[in-house]
Amino acid sequence: MMKIIKDGLLTLVQDLGRTGYQKYGVIASGSMDTFAHRIGNLLVGNEEKEAVIEVTLLGPVIEFHEDAVLSICGGDLSPAIDNEEITMWKPILVKKGAKLTFGKPRTGCRAYIAIAGGLDIPVVMGSRSTYMRAKIGGHNGRALQTEDVIHFKESFNLDTGARSFVEKDWTVARSLIPEYSHRPTISLIEGPQFSWFDEKSLQTLFSTSFKVSSQSDRMGFRMEGESLSLKEPRELISEAVSFGSIQVPNDGNPIILLADRQTTGGYPKIGQVASIDLPILCQMKPGEQLRFKQITLEEAQKAWLDQEHSIQLLKRSISLKKKEESS
C-alpha cells in the first residue's frame, strides 16, 4: 500500500474510461493523456487499461508502505524518490519506506504513476475511473486527499541493495516518447458541422493561435482567440460528442471537449482533434497557445494505426525482456 502524505492539486485514480455507459448519460472519464497511461502500464507489466494515478501540475507526496514496481510517464513534473531525481518512462523498483515527490513542472502538466499489479480500487460500472461530479469510481468517488491509503493488488519483495530505489536499465525508444510542447500544433479533422461556419472562421481556425483559457479543466479546454461564427444562425439537434470534439457556442470561442466531457452536446462542432494528438493537447496548461493544422480522416486513421503498431511492438519487446529477466 501507499499513503498520500500531501495531496497535490488534483490527484486522481483513472483508467482508460467508463465505456459502455455513455448511452445512459454517464460520462466516460479516464486518463487525459491515454498514451502516457498505456505506456506506463506496459512498462510495469500491467494491462494497458489498468488504473493509474493521474497527477496534475502540483504533485502529491506519496509514501510507500511496501515494495513496489512503478513507472512515471507523461508530463515531466520533476519526480524524485527520497530527494533524488528519477528517470521517467522507465520501470523503477521502490523499497518500503521510500517517498515519492514531485517538483517544478518542466514539460506538460499531467504525470501518470503506474504500479505493477495495479491499484486495489473497486470497479463501478466497469471502470475504476473517478467521476467526481457523480461521486463514484476511483477512491471514494473523489480526488485523493492527504492521509488516504491505496492498496495494491499484488505484493513484491524486491532487492534494491542499500538504496531505496533502483531504476531498470532499459526504457522506451526515444522516438515513442511524445514531445510535450508549450506551443504545439494540433492536427484537426473536419467536424460534423464544419460547413456551417463562414469562410473567414475556417481561415481563422487554421491561421491563428488559440490560447487555453483559465476556465479549462478535465471536462474541456475553453479556447481564446478570434471569434468563430456560422454562415447563418442555425440550431443543432443535440447529438453525441467525443474526446476531442471542438464545439463552438454562440460567443464564438471554441471549447475542446476532453476526458470528463458530457455525452451529448447541442453546439455545432467545427472540428475534431485527431486522436493521435489528444495526449499532446491534454498536457497543455492554461495560458499556453496552440495552432491547428488540418488533416484528412484518412491521415488521422493511418497515423493512429501506425502508433498502435509501435505500441504492439513495445508490448512484445517488454514481454521478451520479462522472460529474459525471469530465466
Binding site: 459502455g20 455507459y21 448511452k23 439537434i237 443535440s238 447529438e239 453525441a240 493512429w304
Partner: peptide, 15 residues
C-alpha cells in the same frame, strides 16, 4: 459503445 440522441445514433469503434 454507442450513444443514441434525438435523431442520431453514434457508434464508437476500434480502428
Amino acid at each position: 459503445e454507442y450513444i443514441p440522441a434525438f435523431t442520431t445514433v453514434t457508434v464508437f469503434y476500434r480502428p
